[in-house]
Deep mutational scan, measured.
Amino acid sequence: AIERGSKVKILRKESYWYGDVGTVASIDKSGIIYPVIVRFNKVNYNGFSGSAGGLNTNNFAEHELEVV
């Protein structure tokens, strides 16, 4: 089962992080479509409006993740 702290591989082909491994930061139990927040070591794009980097978290559905 996917739980907080799990290392997961991203299976969503259109994702910037496809094939990468991230760490589960949290799981939303409220029934939303993409409840699993995954944190990565790298950012997906340069930040804007003065922020240092881009996003390094993204929401995924459990079926888009594979525990490694």
Score class of each variant (00 low, 15 high):
E14R: 08
V8M: 01
N41V: 11
G19C: 13
K13I: 13
I32K: 11
A61F: 06
T57Q: 10
P35E: 09
E66G: 03
P35K: 14
S15H: 03
R4S: 08
R4C: 15
Y16M: 07
R39E: 08
K13H: 06
Y34K: 06
G53V: 10
E3N: 10
L65S: 01
G31P: 05
G54V: 08
A25T: 13
S6D: 09
F48E: 15
I32N: 10
F40V: 02
G5Q: 02
K7L: 14
L65K: 01
W17Q: 01
A52T: 13
I37P: 00
Y18M: 02
S26H: 13
E62S: 08
A1L: 11
I27A: 01
V36F: 15
Y45T: 15
I27L: 06
S51F: 09
V21M: 05
G5C: 14
S26C: 15
D20R: 14
G19K: 05
H63M: 05
V8N: 01
R39C: 15
N59R: 11
T57E: 13
W17G: 00
V36A: 00
F48G: 14
V43E: 13
S6W: 13
G31K: 09
N58Y: 12
V68R: 03
N44L: 14
V67E: 04
V38G: 00
D28N: 07
A1S: 11
N41H: 11
E66N: 03
Y45C: 15
Y18R: 01
S49W: 11
R12F: 03
G19P: 01
F60C: 03
F40N: 00
I27R: 02
N59L: 05
N44T: 06
D28P: 03
L11I: 04
V8Y: 00
I27T: 03
T23Y: 08
E14Q: 10
K42N: 09
N58C: 15
F40W: 01
V38I: 04
Y45R: 13
K13M: 08
A52K: 09
S26K: 10
G47W: 06
A52D: 14
R39H: 07
I10R: 03
N46A: 06
I27S: 01
I37A: 08
V38D: 00
N58D: 15
V21I: 12
R12I: 04
K7R: 12
I33R: 13
K29Y: 12
I2Q: 01
N58W: 15
Y34H: 11
D20W: 11
N46P: 15
N59S: 11
V24H: 01
N44I: 13
I10M: 01
G47F: 05
I10A: 02
N59K: 08
K42Y: 07
V8H: 01
I37G: 04
N44H: 13
I27D: 00
G53T: 12
V24C: 05
S26T: 07
Y45H: 15
A61G: 07
V38C: 04
N56G: 05
S15R: 01
G47D: 15
D28M: 10
F60V: 01
S30R: 08
F40M: 02
S6N: 07
F48Y: 09
F40S: 00
G5A: 02
K42S: 08
V68H: 03
I32R: 08
S6M: 14
K42I: 07
A1F: 10
A25L: 15
N41Y: 09
N44A: 09
S30L: 05
S51Y: 06
W17P: 00
G22M: 05
L55Q: 12
G19R: 05
A25C: 15
A25M: 15
I33L: 13
V68S: 03
E64W: 04
I27Q: 01
Y18F: 12
E3Y: 13
F60L: 02
P35Y: 14
S49M: 13
F40I: 03
L65W: 03
A1P: 11
G5S: 03
K29G: 09
E14F: 08
K29S: 11
K9C: 14
V67F: 05
N56Q: 09
K7N: 06
E62A: 12
R12V: 04
W17Y: 05
K42G: 09
V43R: 07
G31L: 12
A61K: 06
N59V: 06
G50E: 14
Y16P: 08
Y34P: 05
I2C: 13
K13G: 04
V38H: 00
E14G: 12
G54S: 09
S51H: 09
I10H: 02
K13W: 10
G47I: 05
V43L: 08
Y16S: 05
Y45N: 15
A52M: 12
D20A: 12
K7M: 12
N41C: 15
N46L: 10
I33N: 12
Y45V: 15
P35S: 12
F40D: 00
S30M: 04
K7Y: 13
G31Y: 10
S30T: 11
V68A: 04
G47N: 08
G5W: 05
A61V: 03
A52G: 12
G31V: 10
S51A: 11
N44G: 08
V67A: 05
F60W: 02
F48I: 13
A61W: 06
G54T: 08
V8C: 13
I37L: 14
K42D: 09
R39W: 13
K7A: 07
R39M: 13
A1K: 13
D20N: 10
E62L: 14
A1T: 12
V8G: 00
I37Q: 11
F48R: 03
K13Q: 10
E66W: 08
Y45Q: 15
Y16K: 05
A52H: 09
F48W: 07
R4G: 05
Y18N: 02
G54Q: 08
E3V: 13
N46C: 15
V21A: 01
I2H: 03
T23Q: 05
A25G: 04
G54L: 07
N44E: 12
T23N: 02
V38K: 00
K9H: 03
D20E: 13
S30K: 07
S49N: 10
S26V: 06
G50S: 10
K42E: 07
L65P: 01
V43I: 12
F60N: 01
T23E: 11
N56D: 11
H63L: 05
G5V: 02
T57D: 07
S49K: 06
K42R: 12
Y18C: 05
K13R: 12
G31T: 09
N56H: 08
N56I: 09
N56A: 08
G31R: 06
R4E: 11
I27G: 00
L55C: 15
V36D: 00
W17V: 01
A52E: 13
V68N: 02
S30N: 08
K13D: 02
L65M: 03
N58L: 07
L55D: 10
I37T: 14
N41L: 12
K29I: 08
K13E: 06
F48V: 14
E64I: 03
A61R: 03
Y18Q: 01
A25K: 08
I2T: 02
I27C: 05
Y34F: 10
V21R: 03
V36M: 04
G54I: 09
L11Q: 03
E66Q: 11
V36L: 04
I32Y: 08
T23K: 04
I2R: 01
I10Q: 01
Y34W: 08
N59P: 08
E64H: 02
V21Y: 08
K42Q: 07
D20F: 14
T23G: 01
